[in-house]
Design a protein around this nucleic acid. Sequence first.
DNA 1: GTAATTTGCGGGAGCGTTCCCAATCGGCCA
DNA 2: TGGCCGATTGGGAACGCTCCCGCAAATTAC
Lengths: 330, 330
Amino acid sequence: MMDVARLAGVSHQTVSRVLNEHPNVSEPTRLKVRAAIAELGYRPNRTARALVTGTSKVIGVVAPNTALYGPASMLTAFEQAAQDSGFAVNVGSVRTLNERSIADAVERHLDQRVAGLVVIAPVAGAGPALARLPEDIPLVTIDGDPERASTLVTVDQVAGARAATEHLLAAGHSTVWHISGPADWFDAAGRVRGWQDALSAAGAEQPPLLTGDWSAESGYRNGKLLARLPEVTAVFTANDHIALGLLRALSEHGRRVPEEISIVGFDDVPQAAYYTPPLTTVRPDFDAVATAGVELLLAQIESGSPDLATRRTIAPTLITRDSVAPPPAR
Amino acid sequence: MMDVARLAGVSHQTVSRVLNEHPNVSEPTRLKVRAAIAELGYRPNRTARALVTGTSKVIGVVAPNTALYGPASMLTAFEQAAQDSGFAVNVGSVRTLNERSIADAVERHLDQRVAGLVVIAPVAGAGPALARLPEDIPLVTIDGDPERASTLVTVDQVAGARAATEHLLAAGHSTVWHISGPADWFDAAGRVRGWQDALSAAGAEQPPLLTGDWSAESGYRNGKLLARLPEVTAVFTANDHIALGLLRALSEHGRRVPEEISIVGFDDVPQAAYYTPPLTTVRPDFDAVATAGVELLLAQIESGSPDLATRRTIAPTLITRDSVAPPPAR
DNA sequence: GTAATTTGCGGGAGCGTTCCCAATCGGCCA
DNA sequence: TGGCCGATTGGGAACGCTCCCGCAAATTAC
């Protein structure tokens, strides 16, 4: 910086002003400084800046360390959104979603002096870890506990699940079965609730809930059961991978989709259109979630006040393909 | 830090020594300092440390911004491996894999003063961007250009593809077709070569190469073609998603797998076991890649010498399931 | 025409560390 | 006993930037 100042014939202070776009610099000086910067290929040292300002242009993202489609998509979407706002992203992934490991990940980010924190930890265990956070750090929770008072961006799981269930009911099915995600995920709970809501709103009987864990394997396991129940004509699965496992189990038992059994998934993974049959599913808009999340976070960072407790809900859309048909005539 | 020093009755310098596990500190002093640290809940400021040492415990990862299974798995695996070595990860994703955007991502990382760089950019365009890198920054390339002189960790695409092709030939097929990935990806090129190698080693005729783009859609598109060719009895696809699209196309045309056509994929996505039929595929060990990558990077960081030009190749394994059978009798 | 702003710029301090160098204190060897 | 050596500790400088304050020149106001 001193070199630049010398070359431009000004003080280091003026260089700093040009860098930070301070208004009180005359045009000629500004140009001289810019020229010097370009000539020397000077790049400001963000570390030094972070030291003196006490903050950095980095946001920390805590995400589960998994190949799950949702979290993984979220992560890249976040990185992209942050990048567009001139922020870098520090990722601290978490092997297991318990309070302890989430707290550790948060600590690591705090050590790095991140300007704000995005926590994608859609399980109940995340709550306590977040509660013990220093008050003054900007924080946005993604798909977190709807009951907790914090800035929250969430996919409207309930609405999505309701749409899926209603779609099946509208096709003529008397009721809809559900294979859920893990019970401690808010996403899973919301989808269960939307399913229940739609069912009771339609006055349909509510079949027992089958529990999965997002994996195709769990869809397969539950599918072996469902395949043997002749009264099952419609199933809503908590995600597309469960639906895939279900499809396979049904195919093994010779039950045809959608002629005998209709299925709706959730997530719209890129492959869903190429399942056999192509899967009707619910598509959450991860980019919108990420954009909203970064927006809320930056608002907090800029204002300096962390606890806006704003909510933002992203509505998913139903994508209809070929896995839904009217129930077979009795 | 001054507070800690005061409380422990030593100088700031001694506190620093304790923090950095410098040998020349007497046991009593060390304990006093540790006690003071604990009592005050003091946490060292990594920013200040980074400023004075000129480096940080952060590594930058450049990865394509995609939900592609390979890169996404790689990314989380890297984060995990880095974490285990006490490093944080800064991710700079890249929307499009061209020279310009890769160079930008690298610049952003350099701005952040990362200690080292991992580039997951398995396309030809990455080369020039990497060539213009400052010489003194530790760098590990993943699945990069085998021709470039740089530290490189790569999945042995050729061996994997050869194993897949040989497996099909061993089942009795006279030849094997291939749907490749995008031509500019090294991964795709390697898989093509392995396929060709196995074919010519067996003296089998080499069918025309079909080109895909990793997507299920491209598998479907090429599948519609293959389904109409009665002589096709075995197909090796560049990844599992292509295989999924192919499965769907074949199913639409009433061609059964594996009775009429055998298929082998690549990647072993978690869902592959639940395709219809369960897919025989090649599994690359992403964790091993990440571990090796971080290891090589840390070696460079510690030694201070960047260009070891070491290579590390990770051998993938063939996972046999139900999508391969002998060809139908003529 | 003089005083009161405003504008443009520079000097110096300080952010929280680590590194270099010096100083003190025993113990040991001759 | 005296000086030398290693072990331990402390004092300052420096890393590269931003912020606070001050000062000169230019502008405006009366």
